[in-house]
């Protein structure tokens, strides 16, 4: 349960950051929070108390179904990689944006309006 709360909490914190802040860097951090929150929630779904990691070490573990669900963990691995890629891309765009406009606030621009 604590995992759900933690994950949900992180998600909400990230969301709050995105809702309130206009600074691009902070918004990216907020996005990161949200991602981490979702990842924790996913792991928590697959977790069964008292079971070990789904690594093919000994036959008994598999046979007695002593492992947690491996699929969410695989998903999270993929999601983390994707998250990193997106964050990197976002940061590089922010750098380029800052060079051109000298500001970290998107809403000051009037060109792309309405």
């Amino acid at each position: 349960m604590i995992y759900y709360i933690a994950g949900g909490g992180l998600f909400l914190i990230g969301l709050y950051i995105l809702l309130v802040n206009r600074n691009l860097i902070k918004m990216i951090i907020g996005l990161g929070f949200m991602e981490t929150g979702v990842n924790i929630i996913i792991i928590a779904f697959g977790y069964v108390k008292g079971k070990t990691a789904p690594i093919l070490s000994t036959k008994e573990l598999i046979n007695n179904r002593q492992v947690v669900d491996p699929l969410p963990q695989a998903l999270v691995l993929t999601a983390i990689v994707i998250g990193v890629a997106v964050t990197a891309l976002a940061l590089s765009m922010v750098v380029s944006y800052y060079k051109k406009r000298g500001s970290l606030n998107l809403s000051k621009n009037k060109e792309l309006k309405w």
Binding site: L24, M27, V86, A90, M93, V94, Y97, K100, N109, L112
Partner: peptide
């Protein structure tokens, strides 16, 4: 970049 960032978020 502005459009890209909006789209990205």
């Amino acid at each position: 970049e502005e459009a890209g960032l909006k789209y990205l978020f």
